[in-house]
């Protein structure tokens, strides 16, 4: 059985590029606050979604629609419409996080497959089985807080398929349970589908250094000419009791390509690549490499080595929580 590659598309062009590069499944969202990558210029209109689904289906690929923010009180119809429109577009599944929205989808769209978003941070077999019993969830995207043996233990205790992140941006907090961004900027992943938004970023030259601020908080300072990292809160530089450093996480990104055989052994169904905000060229290259890796694994050939290091945000890669010492 070949592991499924689940690949990001922020635009119709990226969707087509991912399909042509060999993606088994594409995930994407509508251009509004119903999805957790609600960035300017990204995502799909209703027409683009239907066309994207038709394009993917014609080439044997699936489309999963992320509707994974938490509906705003009093505004549920916007999210309900997104679920209905995803079904109408012919999508193969919706990726949801909010229990109220899951209940709605299970009741009104029983034929539409439901995946549990990473934003629900379901981190053990008990709660995963509970989501399956309550809402008929068929697959869970695991939060990035688990080690490979823990993932294996989960798979041993559930029939729900598991999907794990293997490449791209890395949340260090349990997803869907972090309001650092709205504390500093008023905009959050859960409510607005954004984290550390560009609208609140400010760079300033000060005394030969470049300071990067988010919401007025200085969380990077580099010498002139050095590349200035984007001020994502949990990758920022801070001072605590006289020591300065990356308190939460270094500016690294996830690269678990070498763990693919172990993840397969752990019973993982699908490998997810982060990056709906990425260019189609980037998406195509990452997809091609991961498709080659899962095909090699299925055929019993050795894994291609170090294929993606240079795509990792120009930074060091990490295997994150998959190795227990990360904690």
């Amino acid at each position: 059985m070949v592991m499924e590659t689940v690949c990001p598309a922020g635009t119709p062009a990226a969707l087509r590029a991912a399909v042509e590069a060999g993606a088994h499944s594409i995930y994407c969202g509508f251009a509004d606050e119903t999805n957790a990558r609600n960035f300017p210029g990204l995502n799909f209109s209703r027409e683009e979604m239907a066309a994207g689904v038709a394009f993917a289906h014609a080439r044997g690929a699936k489309v999963l629609v992320a509707i994974n923010t938490y509906p705003r009180a009093g505004a549920a119809p916007l999210w309900h419409r997104a679920v209905a429109d995803a079904e109408a577009s012919g999508a193969d599944a919706v990726i949801l996080a909010d229990p109220g929205l899951l209940a709605h989808a299970a009741e009104h769209h029983p034929g539409l497959r439901r995946h549990l978003s990473v934003q629900a941070a379901a981190a053990n077999a008990d709660v995963i089985n509970f989501y399956a019993d309550s809402f008929g969830v068929k697959r869970v995207v695991l939060p990035r807080v688990l080690s490979v043996p823990e993932i294996a233990a989960i798979n041993a205790e559930t029939d729900v398929e598991t999907e794990v992140f293997v490449f791209g941006g890395l949340c260090v907090m349990a997803e869907g349970r972090c309001s650092l961004s709205s504390y500093a900027t008023g905009l959050s992943p859960n409510m607005h589908g954004v984290c550390s938004p560009a609208s609140h970023v400010d760079y300033a030259e000060e005394g030969g250094e470049l300071a990067a601020r988010l919401g007025g908080y200085t969380i990077h300072r580099v010498g002139k000419g050095e590349p200035a990292p984007y001020p994502t809160l949990c990758k920022g530089c801070f001072t605590s009791q006289g020591a300065t450093g990356h308190v939460f996480e270094d500016p690294v990104s996830l690269n678990a390509e070498q763990l693919i055989p172990q993840l397969a052994k752990a019973g993982v169904t699908a490998l997810k690549i982060e990056g709906r905000q990425r260019s189609r060229a980037y998406v195509a290259q990452v997809v091609r490499n991961f498709r080659a890796a899962v095909d090699a694994l299925a055929a019993g050939r050795p894994m291609p080595e170090g294929m993606l290091a240079r795509l990792s945000e120009g930074q060091a890669g990490t295997t994150g929580a998959y190795r227990k010492t990360w904690r």
Partner: peptide, 21 residues
């Protein structure tokens, strides 16, 4: 103080150069 985030990683341990375990 507001509970803003929860993680698999222990930041107190990390600040002391240790791991959670």
């Amino acid at each position: 103080r507001l509970p803003l985030a929860i993680s698999g990683r222990c930041y107190h341990a990390r600040l002391h150069g240790r791991t959670k375990d």
